[in-house]
Design a protein around this nucleic acid. Structure first.
Lengths: 349, 349
DNA sequence: CTGTTAGCGCCTTCAG
DNA sequence: CTGAAGGCGCTAACAG
């Protein structure tokens, strides 16, 4: 059995008393500001503080400085493949600037507004990065008005709440262009929800590539499903039942592509022999599927990193663009084995 | 462009002044304690507070109450399949008890001790749940001595630092028993790192099941790889090169099994026709692989939940067992299609 | 180079 | 039922 240790915390005053100096001197020395302190007292203070195991109380410090040096990152779905890179980017940038980054789970609807309240308004963090999908324009407006300490990730918002997005359109275009390049003409898109901005931008990339190549886009070929495996499975099953099924498919997410792959297997369709597939977003697992999936790798680490840098600028009082885009590095195609020329496509004949 | 909003925060004093009462009265009313306040003043205070958009400052409150009502959860690898369930469980339990739960990324070595320092010792959280693998006995000892506000998840530690584990041994046994039940005798284990406690307990489950069935365990059949896809791939490749390759494989993790599946595909080995496989840990993706993977589902949500409840008890001053085990629900087999009777095994002949 | 003096925003006795 | 007073632990002028 363990009973809680209720050791009395040692405070600045304890150190000051033990070192026989004024608390303010201890404060100065321990924080390294105001170097005009004699080496003698400095050493003594440092030594005594170490002996006593003194650790400054963040709450007291925050109360006077009115900054916590911690940032929050709100994530909608920790089970997704993509967020770990965003988080690593954010953690890296935060640490470089002396901040701590904490992740807040917002898997339930309504949590976003709640988290904003408890984290930002109550002063637990200095600012918040919001990757959550549950940001309504109303909420964005409210956040802007009440704090001006939030940045929305990869979602365009009507309000002038600052946001940073990736070039989802260019990314998706890249994948579709590859399908076109090897000779596909009947290309479908397993899209995300119709009303979500991020999903719409990816769809626009699909349309853009098709149009640029002078290819028609039958509305049948656009399936508004979702980001999950099951969505991809259902959507793909639907596509395979079409009069004239596609020979190439671009999926809105890695999970969706995995579901689609399973639907193909169930239907006896071989990838890439009978059908080619490309997925939006890359992750190690893509290389271990059957077949290894060709994907579009997006700069997710950089998204987290740049979003954090932007937020920190904002907190420092610098003004930042209302909407930024991650351009470096640009989306890139990770070629594996899920794309081949169509069996009887133009180039193959 | 956005410039930071520097609205002066409205404080308790502002509300008190506007409502023409003493700050202490406002404090009492807004927190619902001390009901002996006239309905008249109560209403007035609540109304004024709302009008002014008053939100209590968490730091000031923490300073006097010396509790933050927030808990931290340290995670080693956010990209893993398993942690999202643990997090959801912890968030749920925390919310029920009125706490906020924040997740801290500890993907780098050394981060654990750093996070403990900045989160617990500096008083940013009241307690910490540690799922990180980088907890040495020394660190555990230090944490125990300095705070007594941490709980280790699924890792046995030499010190008397409280911890909570799952029955990894029973879980793995369950998977291996299924392999045995359908007739396999040559069963291998794609294990994790040899020196990690969690991995060792799973391995013990494998050995236990084998021994109980009176089957030999050739050391060749135990591959100490790791938890990732690439580890499973390498390990499986190695197993397939053996003189007498196994007909059944139990993998230490879902990712490892996915890698192993890929290795089989590369080698032209069909699952489950030529080889059966079972993975430790379940996730939706397992149902969309080729073939859909039979897995052992562990009570991860409950691990997060119970760990949090334990931590809260500890913080309240109640004493808790040094080591607990999640027993409800017990591990369960999720039967899909990766296990079949061996081609020429005892039962098949 | 170091001590003195005021708070930061809130809670909590203790009086009245 | 409500006000007055003091303090949580630390920082930030301002004196000396």
């Amino acid at each position: 059995m363990t009973t809680p240790g209720a050791r009395a915390r040692v405070t600045l005053l304890d150190v000051a008393a033990a070192a026989e100096v004024d608390p303010s001197t201890v404060s100065r020395v321990l924080r390294g500001v105001n170097q005009r302190v004699s080496d003698d007292t400095r050493e003594r203070i440092v030594r005594v503080a170490a002996e006593l195991g003194y650790v400054a109380n963040a709450n007291a410090r925050s109360l006077v400085s009115s900054e916590t040096m911690t940032l929050g990152l709100l994530i909608p779905n920790l089970a997704s493949f993509v967020y770990s890179d965003v988080i690593r980017g954010a953690v890296t940038a935060a640490r470089e600037a002396g901040y701590i980054l904490v992740v807040v789970d917002a898997s339930e609807i309504g949590t976003t507004s709640d988290a904003f309240h408890r984290m930002v308004l109550e002063g637990r963090v200095d600012g918040l990065l919001i990757a959550s999908g549950t940001v309504t324009d109303t909420l964005a407006e409210e956040m802007l008005r009440q704090s001006g300490r939030c940045i929305i990730l990869n979602r365009l918002i009507e309000s002038s709440q600052p946001s940073i997005i990736e070039d989802d359109e260019a990314g998706m275009r890249l994948g579709v262009e590859e399908l076109i390049r090897v000779g596909h003409t009947r290309i479908a898109c397993l899209a995300g929800p119709e009303d979500v901005d991020t999903s719409r931008r990816r769809l626009a990339g699909y349309r853009g590539a098709m149009t640029a190549a002078g290819m028609p886009v039958p509305e049948d070929y656009i399936v508004y499903a979702g980001y999950e495996e099951s969505d991809g499975y259902t959507g793909m099953t639907h596509l395979l039942e079409l009069q004239e099924p596609p020979t190439g498919v671009a999926a809105v997410s890695l999970a969706s592509a995995i579901g689609a792959l399973a639907a193909c297997t169930s239907a006896g369709i071989r990838v890439p022999d009978d059908l080619s597939m490309v997925a939006f977003h890359d992750a190690p697992i893509a290389g271990f599927l059957a077949p290894p999936l060709t994907t579009v790798s997006m700069p997710l680490f950089e998204l987290g990193q740049q979003a954090t840098q932007l937020l920190i600028k904002l907190l420092k009082g610098e003004s930042i663009p209302t909407t930024s885009k991650v351009t470096e590095p640009s989306p890139s195609l990770v070629v594996r084995e899920s794309i081949a020329a169509p069996r009887s496509g133009p180039l193959a004949v």
